[in-house]
């Protein structure tokens, strides 16, 4: 069985994150790059399954700038078998549709039975990509799973639905995305780190994948970007026994209660 895990590098949410006000793109210089937290859990799901089953091969796939390579190496150290990096200048500022097309093309090229992704990254937070990739690949999706069981034929899991919890099952091939309810990722170990240096890491250009970024299809474009004025502190009081009353007066005066 071949599992492809979608890996994303994001600006560290503990630092300041910025958009470049001219291009509207993430300012990659402004903050440190880290493995998206949820990606770690997706990798963990694949690696722990590989430990429990025979002949499971894990390919790690990322689309991103040069720097994403070190993030891929880090995930390799957690236990993947190969890494695949789509890097092409024409992808700068790629919208969701193009990104999904590129990732699906790469997944096809690598070959897959199962694709595992995080449900939404900490920077994009769109949460659309996994299902878009599934539609591109023409396979079932089971997204935003709070639990995940993998078998040779199918995946099962639970996710939140309207008014309750939905149990779902998808026959392979399929695309799943997982939430932060999944187990914490392992830390890369000494052996894993040493082995990761020797594992294959392939790079692909758009031409390699047969994708034309300039094709005349509808794209989402950024019209404007502006920095929101920072929220500032308002009134701050120390409770001297009457703060509850004062808050009630404040809320009533503002007509919010």
């Amino acid at each position: 069985m071949k599992i492809v895990v979608l890996v994303k590098e994001v600006p560290d949410s503990y630092g300041e994150r910025k958009l470049n006000l001219t291009t509207g793109l993430a300012d990659r210089e402004a903050s440190e790059k880290v493995l998206d937290e949820i990606t770690g859990r997706a990798v963990e799901a694949a690696v722990s399954y590989a430990e429990s089953a025979d002949e499971v091969e894990i390919a790690l796939l990322s689309m991103g700038p040069e720097s994403a390579e070190s993030t891929l190496r880090k995930t390799l150290a957690m236990g993947g078998d190969s890494a695949h990096h789509v890097v092409d200048e024409a992808l700068l500022g790629a919208d969701l549709t193009l990104t999904a097309q590129v990732l699906a093309a790469a997944v096809q090229k690598i070959g897959f039975d199962l694709v595992i992704a995080g449900d939404a990254s900490s920077d994009g937070a769109g949460g659309l990509l996994p299902a878009m990739v599934a539609e591109q690949l023409g396979v079932a999706h089971a997204t935003s799973l709070d639990s995940l069981q993998i078998s040779a034929e199918a995946v099962t899991g639970e996710r939140a639905g309207y008014g309750g919890t939905v149990s779902v099952q998808a026959q392979l091939p399929a695309v799943v995305s997982v939430t932060e309810r999944l187990p914490d990722p392992r830390f890369p170990g000494f052996k894993g780190i040493m082995q990761a240096k020797k594992k294959p890491l392939e790079t692909y250009s758009l031409a390699d994948l047969g994708v034309d970024a300039s094709a005349d299809v509808p794209r989402s474009i950024m019209l404007s970007v502006s920095q929101t004025p920072a929220r500032t502190a308002g009134e701050k009081i120390t409770d001297e026994g009457d703060a509850g009353k004062r808050l009630a007066e404040y809320l009533i005066e503002k007509k919010v209660v």
Partner: peptide, 21 residues
């Protein structure tokens, strides 16, 4: 029993995590 070493500072920091944790 086993000895590993690395001159890469980032990998080294990943080694030291075992102690920091």
């Amino acid at each position: 029993d086993e000895v590993f070493y690395t001159a890469d500072p980032e990998e080294g920091e990943a080694f030291v995590v075992a102690r920091r944790m």
